[in-house]
């Protein structure tokens, strides 16, 4: 009983869709079929929207989040607590932490974790940018990286650098299920982890 895959252009489409995170082969097939079976106007609108989103959105120059202008809303918001920066692996994590409603400071995306196996060195991450942002006003850096060994190693690396500047470094408490990524944690879990953060 061999598995049957769609062939030709349809197969190509399925394969492309399955490259998105969290999309398995079965879901990719369902999405591809639904796209092709829907009317031409829906496809046109959808591809126009994709193009529009891609050209209107870029990375915030400061925190690295997705932004409609050079500087994102959070970085511009004067009402936020500008003495705290929360460090995340990628912009998606910012969304999860915002949803928890527990945190009112600033963010910084590293765009990855240290991983010699994947050839990712500290220099490849947005660590230099982070250090530039840690000026006189910053009192606390909250490290909110994944609880994987790569997340732990990167946290430790950052903590060493930041502590040299006499700034307090904390990390989320281990309310997070070990081994799973922050984006998948629910708001309550993140809220509890933020409340119980520990100094590094």
């Amino acid at each position: 009983m061999d598995v049957i895959y769609p062939r030709g252009i349809l197969g190509q489409l399925v394969k492309e869709i399955s490259k998105f995170p969290g999309v398995g082969l079965r879901s990719a097939e369902r999405i591809a079929y639904s796209i092709i079976l829907s009317g031409p106007s829906r496809i046109n609108e959808f591809s126009a929207l994709l193009n529009k989103a891609k050209s209107a959105l870029s990375r915030c120059k400061l925190c690295g989040d997705i932004s409609e202008g050079e500087i994102c809303q959070i970085c511009r918001d004067e009402k936020r607590d500008r003495t705290k920066i929360c460090v995340v692996r990628e912009p998606l994590a910012i969304l999860s932490i915002e949803r928890s409603g527990e945190y009112r400071g600033l963010y910084h995306s590293l765009d990855g974790l240290i991983s010699p196996l994947d050839g990712i060195k500290p220099e490849d991450l947005r660590i230099g940018e982070l250090m530039k942002r840690i000026d006189d006003n910053i009192e606390e850096v909250i490290i909110a990286l994944d609880p994987s060994v790569e997340g732990d190693a990167t946290s430790m690396y950052l903590a060493d650098l930041i502590k040299k500047r006499d700034v307090m470094v904390t990390r989320l408490a281990y309310g997070l299920p070990v081994g799973s990524d922050i984006e998948y944690a629910d708001a309550t879990t993140i809220r509890r982890a933020l409340q119980g953060r520990q100094e590094l």
Partner: peptide, 30 residues
Amino acid sequence: NATLSQRNALLKVIQSGGAEVGQLEVWDDG
């Protein structure tokens, strides 16, 4: 095991001069 694979990968990079010895510390911890 995850830490060990990372540390071994880094050792090879250090061997060929691609990283500083100090970077081992964060993996030694694990």
